[in-house]
Simulated assay, not measured.
Amino acid sequence: MKTMKVGNITIDSNIFTLIAGPCVIESETQVMEVASRMKDITGLLGIPFIFKSSFDKANRTSVSAFRGPGIHEGLRILKRVKDELGVPVVTDIHEPYQARIAAEVVDMLQIPAFLCRQTDLLTAAAETGLPVNIKKAQFLSAKDMKNVITKVEESGNEHILLCERGNTFGYNNLVVDMTSIIEMKKFGYPVVFDATHSVQKPGGNLTSTGGNREYVEHLAKAALAVGADLLFMEVHEDPDNAMSDGPNMVRLDEIEVMLKKLIKVYKAVHDFESISCSN
C-alpha cells in the first residue's frame, strides 16, 4: 500500500488511524470541544487522529436543512483546530472552486460519495497536491473506482485514499459489501471504512436522513477484519439533537470504549497476518 502524509501523520497500513468529528460545523465552541476531546482520547490510546467536519453539506435531504457556516467561516474554525490542537484536518468540497480555497487550510480534501464521478471536482482537488479521500458512491461497485482513481492520477496526484460507505439496497437503505474493501485494496491505495455513513437510511425520515448507530461498532469490526486501513466515524456530543446525520453519529462519551475494542480487532488481524507471512 502507498504511504502518504496527512499533515503530521503518516498513513501506513500497519498503524490504526482514525478520521473523526461532527458531520457539520454547528458552532466554533462545539468543534473545539469535540476536537479537543477526541485528541485526548486518541492520544491516550496511542492512535493517529485526523479531525473532520464540513463547512457545508450541499446534499441535504431538505432545502430547509442546516448546511453549515459556509466556506470562509468554516475554514477559519478548522484552522483554529489545526493551529491550537496540532491536529490535521479534512473537509468536504462540493464544487471545483472550493478546492483551492480549502487547500490553504486543510491537510486533506474529501470528495462526497454522490460526487465521486465529477471530473472537474476530482481534477481541482488533485491539482492542489493534497491527499484526496474519495468516497465510493452508493451506486458504484468497487471496480468502478478504477476510473475515479485514473482521473486523479492523470491530474498529477497519487495521494489518494478510497472510502467505502455502503451501497444503495432498495429504498432508504444501505448495505455494506465487505468484499468492496478487499477489491479496492488491490488498487494499492489506503482504504478507509466510513462506519457511520454506512448505517444511514438516506431520506429515511422523509425530510432528513435516518440511521442506526447501534450497528456502527459491528460494521467497523468487520471492515477491520477484512483489511480496512483507516476508520472514519462521525462523532457528536449529543447526536439526538445534532443538526445533521444525528441518527448515525457516535456519541462522544461512548467513543473511547468503542475504539478500545476496535484497536484489539485491528491488532489481532495484523498479528495474524504477520504470523502467516513468517510461515
Rank of each mutant, 00 (worst) to 15 (best):
F139W: 14
E164T: 04
H218K: 10
S155R: 02
V250S: 01
I25C: 02
T29C: 00
E73L: 12
A142C: 04
V265A: 11
T3E: 15
T128K: 10
E73G: 03
D92S: 09
F114P: 00
A195W: 07
C277T: 06
F169A: 04
G166T: 04
V235M: 06
H218A: 15
P239Y: 09
I47N: 01
D56G: 05
K5A: 09
V89N: 03
S278W: 13
T123E: 15
A137K: 08
I182H: 13
S141V: 02
G129Y: 08
I182N: 02
L122R: 05
Y189V: 05
D83M: 01
K261W: 09
A65Y: 13
M32P: 02
V24P: 01
A242K: 01
S64P: 00
G156N: 05
E95I: 14
L140R: 08
P112Q: 03
P69Y: 07
S180P: 01
P69F: 08
I134W: 10
N157K: 05
E183A: 14
I19Y: 13
G170H: 02
Y189S: 05
L231D: 00
I50C: 10
N147L: 13
A222M: 10
I134L: 07
A137D: 09
E33H: 10
M233I: 15
I25Q: 06
F66Y: 15
G211H: 06
Y215S: 05
M178D: 02
G70W: 01
K136M: 04
A195N: 03
G70T: 03
D12F: 11
N8G: 12
K5D: 15
D107N: 10
D56P: 04
I50V: 15
K264L: 14
I255E: 01
H94R: 09
V269A: 13
P22W: 11
A124D: 02
E254D: 12
V257M: 07
G203Q: 10
E154P: 01
M233P: 00
S274R: 15
E84D: 05
V176H: 11
N205D: 13
R76T: 12
V192S: 10
A220N: 08
K135Q: 07
E234H: 11
T150R: 14
A99Q: 03
Q98K: 06
R76S: 12
E214C: 06
V216M: 04
E234G: 11
G204P: 05
F114M: 05
F169N: 01
R213C: 06
S244P: 00
V265Y: 13
G204E: 04
D271A: 13
K5C: 02
C116K: 06
D107S: 06
I25M: 03
N173E: 10
K221E: 09
I11A: 08
V250R: 06
S244T: 12
V265F: 13
D240S: 02
K201Q: 13
